[in-house]
């Protein structure tokens, strides 16, 4: 049937892209294996649809197509959650860069101890921003005003 041919071609294409990404070291070995199992499983089920009836009986699901739908939903939930986690990692890396950028304009000459709650005491702090001329780590103007 035409649908079987199209599905198998689609899965083979997906497998080829996965292999290509693995060779380019875009994905790890475990990711390559997991995706390959998924595409191969899809291809096998497309060629042998009766297999899903057999698997559905094992899992106690009425029809083979229901089993595929349930599995697809579960896999999609997992992938979405994984995407969120990867997004969180990227956000943290971004924050790290922003933080380093902000801290780079500081210089820290240590000062003698001051009295707490006594602003009239030597208020000279050890905490100073570098001046634009001193700032070799970045553009001062980019930190001064929005």
């Amino acid at each position: 049937m035409l649908i079987q041919i199209l599905l198998v071609l689609g899965f083979v294409l997906a497998l080829w892209v996965t292999l290509k990404r693995f060779r380019q070291r875009v994905i790890s070995l475990s990711e390559f294996l997991a995706w390959s199992v998924l595409w191969l499983g899809g291809a096998i089920v497309s060629i042998l649809p009766k297999l899903t009836e057999y698997l559905a009986a094992i899992f106690g699901v009425g029809r083979g197509v229901d089993l595929i739908l349930y599995a697809a939903v579960a896999i999609q939930f997992f992938l979405i959650f994984k995407l969120f986690i990867n997004l969180e990692k990227t956000e943290r890396q971004l924050t790290k860069i922003v933080e380093q950028n902000a801290l780079a304009v500081l210089s820290f000459p240590r000062s003698s101890s001051d009295d707490v709650g006594n602003p009239e005491s030597d208020g000279s702090s050890g905490l100073r921003r570098t001046t634009p001329k001193d700032d070799k780590n970045g553009d001062e103007s980019s930190h001064s005003q929005g």
């Binding site: 922003v98 820290f108 702090s125 050890g126």
Partner: peptide, 29 residues
């Protein structure tokens, strides 16, 4: 000379700003 202003290039939210400030405070002794 008792106020130091650091600036995040983009908005990263309160927790991130607090972490930057706390690190700056620790670095300054």
């Amino acid at each position: 000379g008792r106020v130091c202003v650091l600036r995040h290039a983009i908005n990263r939210n309160q927790g991130a700003a607090l972490r930057t400030g706390t690190k700056a405070a620790l670095m300054s002794g």
